[in-house]
Nucleic acid binder design. Structure first.
Lengths: 224, 224
DNA sequence: CAACAAACCTACCGAGTAGTATGTTTCAGA
DNA sequence: TCTGAAACATACTACTCGGTAGGTTTGTTG
């Protein structure tokens, strides 16, 4: 992978994230590169091919990020939480590439593609499924060792957990806090919400008076 | 709103969800209607205008769904959970419209639009923000009455909760289970995961060794 | 320097697409 | 029945974009 190819990938990811695949023209990417179409078509066969390459790189970055967390010591939920945290950081850090991955999933779902493109996309989605399975397997292990709440449907639970993280692709503004430390704090906050839930746990110090139904009126007064 | 206008909206939402705004041609929508462009341009001024109208309807459906849950009796977290459940059901039921809402958010973020379109989009996003504030306010109330875990950043927590639900727009296959009952079960599973978290709670029958505060440090070591 | 290939640019074509202008039908009310 | 407006359909224009063909530069090797 020459530096030139890599830079094309980066700029293409940016364009695809901002405007989406269809609204992004090859000339847009070229303009961002300070070049012309020729440079892109020299390295990539077609627009969709470029898109797939960005997608592939996005998946590679995800696996790379989560892999180390899987090998940690600790009970099932602790490891699962570490995986989620690593995933969250990766999603924030590489959000341009991961946005393209999300688009690829959508494209696969309603795919109007040629058979050849379809096959490539199938492979990328299979990779995505393998990624999700990492979390599902870890959740199953956590259930077995009793560290995970046992009453949840694992498949739905995992999809919900990953969704909570990945939806940050929609609202995360990297301009605001771009440094690694900010990303880690954000990831920690998201994962804590997901793993611990939001219902107050008994035995903690946050006991307020049981005001009962009062809560509603206070909250509702904020608007309208 | 004549039935004809409404039907255009429904088919447009379907197209926009499946192919995205840019890849959807007016002729596509017309074909789905068994009609031609003329019919659409008679009722809507432009393609983007049609898109905004779908977006607006999507937001209306969300408010309509969550409103009743806000008025329930119960402690803060119980009401919040009910709101999330109502939201989840609405997202699943109207997932075509809500997909368009999500696209609209993206469009607003990187918006290359005319000033007039920009203003319309600003209003729609403001509506979206008001919607999110419903949940944030309820979460604040729940924190005050002690029913919500107090150590979370409310803004991030709410975004994460809603994200967990809304990401179902990506993976939910309505063909598989389209009936209302299935949607409610799915919504319940998602919300339970989000509200209760996945870590086993003490006092339940699935007692593992109390690893206590070890979890955090072990998890934190996973990333540099 | 010669030879050659990789990298990149310029000019262009064909296929679509948003939007418009104008025709045609339907139908309620006078 | 006559009229006019609403609800469409049809035909056309202006424009954009993906992709290609062929030329030009750059770098490398003998």
């Amino acid at each position: 992978m020459t530096p030139s190819k890599q830079e094309i990938l980066v700029q293409a990811a940016e364009c695809f994230m901002e405007q989406g695949f269809h609204a992004t023209s090859i000339d847009d990417v070229a303009r961002r590169l300070g070049a012309t179409k020729g440079r892109i078509y020299h390295h990539y066969a077609s627009k969709i091919d470029l898109f797939f390459e960005v997608h592939r790189e996005g998946m590679r970055l995800l696996f790379e990020a989560v892999e180390p967390a899987r090998k940690l010591e600790g009970d099932g939920v602790t490891v699962l939480a570490a995986m989620l945290r690593a995933h969250a950081v990766a999603v924030l850090r590489h959000h341009t590439f991961e946005s393209v991955v999300a688009q690829g999933v959508q494209m696969h779902r309603f795919g109007a593609t040629t058979p050849s493109q379809r096959q490539t996309l199938d492979e990328l989605i299979a990779s995505r499924d393998r990624f999700e399975k990492l979390f599902k397997d870890q959740a199953a292990a956590a259930r077995r060792d009793g560290s995970l709440a046992a009453d949840a449907d694992l498949s739905i639970a995992v999809k919900t957990l990953l969704g909570g993280i990945q939806w940050s692709l929609i609202w995360y503004r990297p301009e605001a806090d771009a440094d690694e430390h900010a990303r880690e704090r954000l990831a920690e906050a998201m994962v804590r919400t997901l793993v611990e839930g939001i219902r107050a746990r008994p035995g903690r110090a946050c006991a307020a008076a049981p005001t009962k139904g009062k809560a509603r009126s206070a909250a509702g007064s904020g608007l309208t």
